[in-house]
Amino acid sequence: MYTPGIKLGIEPTIRLDQDNEAQPDGVLLIEVALEANSRITDDDYIEGALELVAEIAASSATYDLYDTKKAYKRNRIQEYIVWQSLENQLDWSQLHDSKYISLQTDVDGIIIS
């Protein structure tokens, strides 16, 4: 389903800050016209606080859950999902007051963000 003003990206490059560029497995980007916090630059990088970033992690799970997560928190990425494929575990965090809060499933096994 396509929603005007919302873009899904696969393996984009995010310019987080002077020292960090990330290439997550997927992102959700809401266009500036809809009052988004991020944008696509003229050189095709994403800058700003994306609404959602997703990673599929096997051997990189420790890095994605700690170092990458810190960089995303510092740059106000609103939601961060890490699928730990070897552990068959999903970690979904949402930014609240400069801290990531882990979202849990409801009684039906659904995560609502």
Rank of each mutant, 00 (worst) to 15 (best):
Met1Ala: 11
Met1Val: 09
Tyr2Asp: 11
Tyr2Gln: 15
Tyr2Asn: 13
Thr3Ser: 12
Thr3Met: 03
Gly5Arg: 07
Gly5Asn: 15
Ile6Phe: 15
Ile6Asp: 04
Ile6His: 07
Ile6Gly: 06
Leu8Pro: 02
Leu8Gly: 05
Ile10Arg: 08
Ile10Thr: 11
Ile14Asp: 04
Arg15Leu: 12
Leu16Thr: 00
Leu16Trp: 01
Asp17Lys: 07
Asp17Ala: 13
Gln18Pro: 01
Glu21Gln: 13
Ala22Tyr: 01
Gln23Lys: 12
Gln23His: 12
Val27Leu: 04
Leu28Phe: 10
Leu28Cys: 11
Ile30Asn: 02
Ile30Trp: 05
Glu31Ile: 03
Val32Asp: 09
Ala33Gly: 06
Glu35Cys: 09
Ala36Thr: 08
Ala36Ile: 02
Asn37Leu: 02
Asn37Trp: 02
Asn37Ala: 03
Ser38Pro: 00
Asp42Thr: 07
Asp43Phe: 10
Asp43Ala: 05
Asp43Trp: 13
Tyr45Phe: 11
Ile46Glu: 05
Glu47Cys: 10
Gly48Ala: 05
Leu52Trp: 11
Val53Gly: 00
Ala54Asp: 01
Glu55Val: 02
Glu55Leu: 02
Ile56Thr: 11
Ile56Ser: 13
Ala57Leu: 00
Ala57Gln: 00
Ser60Arg: 12
Ala61Ser: 13
Ala61Lys: 13
Ala61Val: 12
Thr62Arg: 08
Asp64Leu: 08
Asp64Gln: 10
Asp64Arg: 08
Leu65Gly: 03
Tyr66Trp: 12
Lys69Phe: 10
Lys69Arg: 09
Ala71Phe: 01
Ala71Thr: 15
Tyr72Leu: 03
Tyr72Pro: 02
Lys73Glu: 08
Lys73Phe: 00
Arg74Thr: 11
Asn75Gln: 11
Arg76Ser: 07
Glu79Ser: 09
Glu79Gly: 02
Glu79Arg: 15
Tyr80Asn: 12
Tyr80Trp: 10
Tyr80His: 08
Ile81His: 05
Val82Pro: 06
Val82Asn: 06
Trp83Phe: 15
Gln84His: 14
Ser85Pro: 04
Glu87Met: 14
Glu87Leu: 11
Gln89His: 10
Leu90Ser: 12
Asp91Arg: 04
Ser93His: 08
Gln94Lys: 14
Gln94Tyr: 10
Leu95Gly: 01
His96Arg: 10
Ser98Phe: 09
Ser98Cys: 10
Tyr100Ile: 05
Ile101Trp: 04
Ser102Trp: 01
Leu103His: 05
Gln104Lys: 12
Asp106Gln: 07
Asp106Glu: 08
Asp106Met: 07
Val107Asp: 12
Asp108Glu: 15
Asp108His: 14
Gly109Glu: 05
Ile110Val: 04
Ile111Val: 14
Ile112Phe: 00
Ile112Tyr: 01
